[in-house]
């Protein structure tokens, strides 16, 4: 936009025809460039506008509507939020959701970082790196839900895990907490989402100049010092991207919690799905808006630690 005043001043200086025309050409070029970039970005703007921004606005609008047992009606009332913030269950459930997200984050980060580190620094040949990396993605060829449900026969009272432990004589009673428990939920989350940590961390690690590691070693740094002073700071953007993936996925999930806890635990997603089943769309929308705000705040905080744009 800053080019427009220049063009105006150019028009006001007829006594410098050459300079003016040159400037005019420059301005036109800049304007064309600007138009082109607007045109280029417009498909994305349209798609995001129609399929992302508009639905979210709709959810925000509906969250202020009222509902009867069968229908919803347009209104502007705060009843849904009032009930949401007035209920102790809401706080419990949000807390539980954060706990799930935090535990899952710790485990996926530890496992994901280790796997990525192994792939990037221990595997020497590029072929093997790619082969092993593809191996990590194989489970993703099946559906999320199938990978989750396959834990059920494994962890059950008469499942493989319990019978194996019983046969080895490690336990004399089947472990009840293996299935339909918070343990099972976190296990499934970690299993489902670790790859989302591996991929971005591996990606940033591959960009680390190996000579930096060598330089650190030559300067007398120990293995741990290289890790904490060179690799971790340089892999930060990947860690942060992976963390954003995992945290948002866990915060928004409801089906894993329902299946793996045997419906005995609740997270925010289940609150929303219960409301929808009972046709209470405005109340579901209000919960969704609060959840969205929470997740956005968390991501904003996470982005404070690392400037992804600068480091990529």
């Amino acid at each position: 936009m800053s080019v427009i005043p220049t063009s105006a001043s150019g028009a006001k200086a007829p006594d410098l025809p050459l300079a003016a025309s040159a400037r005019y050409r420059l301005v036109r070029k800049a304007r064309d460039g600007e138009r082109a970039s607007w045109l280029l970005s417009s498909p994305l703007v349209l798609v995001l506008g129609i399929f992302l921004v508009l639905p979210i606005l709709m959810i925000v609008v509906v969250s202020f509507w009222g509902a009867t047992e069968f229908s919803i009606y347009p209104a502007f009332e705060f009843d849904n939020y009032q009930f949401l913030f007035g209920s102790a269950v809401t706080y419990q459930v949000f807390f539980k959701t954060f706990v799930f997200a935090a535990i899952t984050w710790v485990f996926t980060l530890a496992i994901g970082f280790t796997v990525a580190y192994f792939l990037a620094f221990h595997v020497r040949s590029l072929t093997w790196q790619i082969a092993l990396f593809l191996l990590c993605t194989i489970p993703f060829w099946t559906s999320n839900i199938i990978r989750m449900i396959s834990w059920v026969p494994f962890l059950g009272r008469n499942g493989i895990a319990n019978s194996a432990l019983l046969q080895m004589g490690l336990i004399d009673q089947p472990l009840e907490w293996l299935l339909f428990s918070d343990f099972a939920v976190v296990l499934a989350f970690v299993h489902l989402y670790t790859l989302f940590m591996v991929v971005p961390i591996f990606n940033t690690m591959m960009r680390i100049d190996k000579s930096l590691v060598e330089a650190a070693r030559d300067a007398g740094a120990s293995g741990l010092q290289i890790l904490t002073n060179v690799i971790i700071p340089l892999a930060k953007p990947g860690i942060m991207i992976g963390s954003i993936f995992v945290v948002t996925l866990v915060m928004g999930d409801f089906i894993t919690v329902r299946f793996m806890s045997g419906s005995q635990s609740a997270n925010v997603g289940r609150l929303i799905s219960n409301d929808i089943a009972l046709l209470q769309y405005p109340s579901a929308a209000a919960t969704a808006v609060v959840l969205l705000a929470m997740v956005l705040i968390m991501i904003a905080i996470m982005l404070r630690f690392v400037d992804i744009r600068k480091e990529l």
Binding site: V152, P153, G156, R157, N158, E176, L179, F180, R258, S261, G262, S263, Q264
Partner: peptide, 25 residues
């Protein structure tokens, strides 16, 4: 009762109730 651990799971769909019972959970 729930807090005391009485329930193994709750079911919502027909199939879930069948699986819970058939597996001996």
């Amino acid at each position: 009762a729930k807090k005391a651990g009485q329930f193994r799971a709750f079911w919502k769909s027909f199939d879930e109730s069948v699986n819970l019972m058939a597996s001996g959970e």
